[in-house]
Structure formats: C-alpha cells, structure tokens
C-alpha cells in the first residue's frame, strides 16, 4: 500500500484555537508553508472533538487526522485536552477493530508561538500518511 508517490493524502486537522491553531496560523503569516494536504478545522479545545467528528472525517475520505491541542497541563479547559486524549485512545482501539490503522490519527501539542514545530509536525504526518497509503474506509459504500 505504501510506496505511492503520486498519492496525495487528505488530512483533516482539528486544531485548538489557543495553541496549535495559532501555531499553524503563524506558519501562514511567516511564510513557513505546511503541506496543502492538510485542511484545518478550528476548535475551541481538542476535548471538543467528538467521536462523530473523527469518524465522519474518515467516512468522508480523510486518510489521516491530526489533532492539535495544547501541551499536557496547559489546557485552558481544565484538562479538556487530556479527556480528549482518553477519547482518542479508546477510539483508536475501536479503529483497530474495524481494521483501520490507528496511526492514521496523530495527536500533537504545540504552543501558539511554535510555528516551525507545527510545520515539521505537519510535514512528518503527511509523509507518514503518504507511506500508509490511501485510507480504505471510503471503499465501503
């Protein structure tokens, strides 16, 4: 499945507006382009990213899902990010049961000023998903 050079993965990024989203924004204004494969959805907190949102993204053809919040301990919403992390942890177990590689979801915690780190993380995730190949979920119809 890997080794697919012409494959351009579709990646949905759910980013917390206080941190990782700000970092991504910074990339934009500082001309540190991140891969255009990534479509960003701004959320208040990663704790708000529901199972329905993640699974719908896969259903609609996402090859990878990036979830970017704050670093542990830095959440504005009293551990919303950690609750979110527990949710992702359990959802990954479910994905596994459905045969979907859990590596298609990645969580990052990037502070608002760390544009460069976001750029690298985005590039790395895109490359990793490209290596995984297209998500088989869509072929479900």
């Amino acid at each position: 499945m890997s080794d697919n050079k012409s494959f351009e993965p579709k990646i949905i990024a759910f980013l917390c507006k206080w941190t990782t989203y700000a970092a991504a924004d910074l990339c934009g204004v500082s001309r540190m382009p991140y891969p255009s494969n990534i479509s960003i959805i701004k959320v208040n907190c990663t704790g708000e990213v529901t199972a329905d949102m993640i699974l719908t993204a896969f259903e609609k053809g996402a090859d990878g899902i990036l979830i970017g919040g704050c670093r542990p301990g830095h959440c504005r919403y009293e551990g919303g990010n950690l609750k979110g992390a527990n949710r992702i942890y359990l959802l990954k177990r479910a994905l596994n049961e459905f045969g979907v590689n859990p590596e298609r979801i990645r969580e990052v915690g990037i502070a608002g000023a760390q544009g460069l780190i976001f750029q690298r993380a985005a590039e790395k995730f895109t490359a990793d998903i490209r290596a995984l190949g297209p998500s088989p979920v869509m072929s479900n119809a």
Binding site: T50, A51, D52, I54, L55, T56, P72, G73, G79, L82, K83, N86, R87, Y89, L90, L91, A94
Partner: peptide
C-alpha cells in the same frame, strides 16, 4: 451519528484524570 463512538466517548470522559500526563 455513531452510537458506538458516542458510548466510547462517554466512557472515556468518565475516567478520572490521574494528573499523570
């Protein structure tokens, strides 16, 4: 939309945070 995802989400949120990152 997804009943299974919804219960997994509820269960995850019921687990108390230990404070250990």
């Amino acid at each position: 939309l997804d009943q299974g995802g919804a219960i997994l989400q509820s269960l995850a949120s019921l687990v108390p945070l230990s404070g250990d990152i």
